[in-house]
């Protein structure tokens, strides 16, 4: 039997309360949609095995409470993330406007090695609701994502399972790239100065 070295990709899902984080995760992992999810309190995660370019990897998707009041707790599980999924509701302008603060908060708390290149994916959820309620146009969202060093953007519906699979495939792919980079480049909490990168064994203390 071949070596079963496991790759675990840690993905954090963030966004305002009620945008559909729990629903998206459940649609993707369990292929189920329910209107009766309760507001998430604390944090939970689901895992899913996926194949990325013939590699089997395990994605660990972290679902969190959406209210900003609980964000100070994020540090307990943001660390070690390989990708961050930012979700907003295309029918709620406020949830789009807060994307930046979610992103900033994540970068502060997770403190990845290279914040500039850390992979994010933006999902505009609830596109099934219909045009008459839609508040954020595709164009506006695309422009935003392009201006943030080209974050991949998907319009999805957890309810209809529109684009969910495709979006998370990109999440998996980008997370794997990140993980591989981390493997060579060292972990999050590595205290070493960047210039010493290549000889990191020298002073790990």
């Amino acid at each position: 039997m071949s070596s079963r070295k496991k790759v675990l990709l840690k993905v954090i899902i963030l966004g305002d309360s009620g945008v559909g984080k729990t629903s998206l995760m459940n649609q993707y992992v369990n292929k189920k949609f329910s209107t009766s999810y309760k507001a998430t309190i604390g944090a939970d995660f689901l895992t899913k095995e996926v194949t990325v370019d013939d590699r089997i990897v395990t994605m660990q998707l972290w679902d969190t409470a959406g209210q900003e009041r609980f964000q100070s707790l994020g540090v307990a599980f943001y660390r070690g993330a390989d990708c961050c999924v930012l979700v907003y509701d295309v029918n709620t302008p406020k949830s789009f406007e807060t994307l930046d603060s979610w992103r900033d908060e994540f970068l502060i708390q997770a403190s990845p090695r290279d914040p500039e290149s850390f992979p994010f994916v933006v999902l505009g959820n609830k596109v099934d609701v219909g045009d008459d309620r839609r508040a954020i146009s595709t164009k506006r969202a695309m422009t935003y994502c392009q201006s943030r060093s080209g974050i991949p953007y998907f319009e999805v519906s957890a309810k209809d399972n529109t684009n969910v699979e495709q979006a998370f495939e990109v999440v998996a792919r980008n997370a794997l790239a990140m993980e591989e980079q981390e493997e060579y480049g060292g972990g999050f909490e590595d205290p070493i100065d960047i210039s010493l990168d290549n000889e990191r064994d020298g002073c790990a203390c």
Partner: peptide, 15 residues
């Protein structure tokens, strides 16, 4: 950190 008790303590085991 006992974070895994957060939900239980926040809403007194409601969930």
């Amino acid at each position: 950190n006992f974070f895994f008790f957060f939900r239980m303590l926040l809403v007194w085991y409601k969930r």
